[in-house]
């Protein structure tokens, strides 16, 4: 049933539930961000990895590996 056809109490209840679960999702994601990504970020920094290519380099180019079209198109990654 479209939102506009719902009775007012149901519409309010739906909005409250939506806000609650959206808030819950935000809390869970924030918790995950600080608990899981923090140690990962520190480990990455300690390892000296330059995933975003922010350090000095002799060129801005990165070579691309030759791809076999069949293999290339079969996967999502």
């Amino acid at each position: 049933m479209p939102e506009t056809e719902l009775p007012e109490p149901l519409r309010r209840a739906k909005a409250v539930l939506h806000a609650f679960f959206s808030f819950e999702a935000d809390v869970l994601l924030a918790a995950f961000y600080y608990l899981a990504l923090a140690p990962t970020a520190w480990l990455v920094r300690l390892s000296g990895r330059d995933g975003l290519g922010l350090k000095d380099a002799p060129t801005g180019w990165t070579a691309r590996e030759a791809v076999d079209p069949a293999e290339h198109m079969a996967g999502q990654g």
Partner: peptide, 13 residues
Amino acid sequence: CVETFPRSGPLFR
């Protein structure tokens, strides 16, 4: 998000 931690919180969510 990992490499720009902790500034990337809202972007991550």
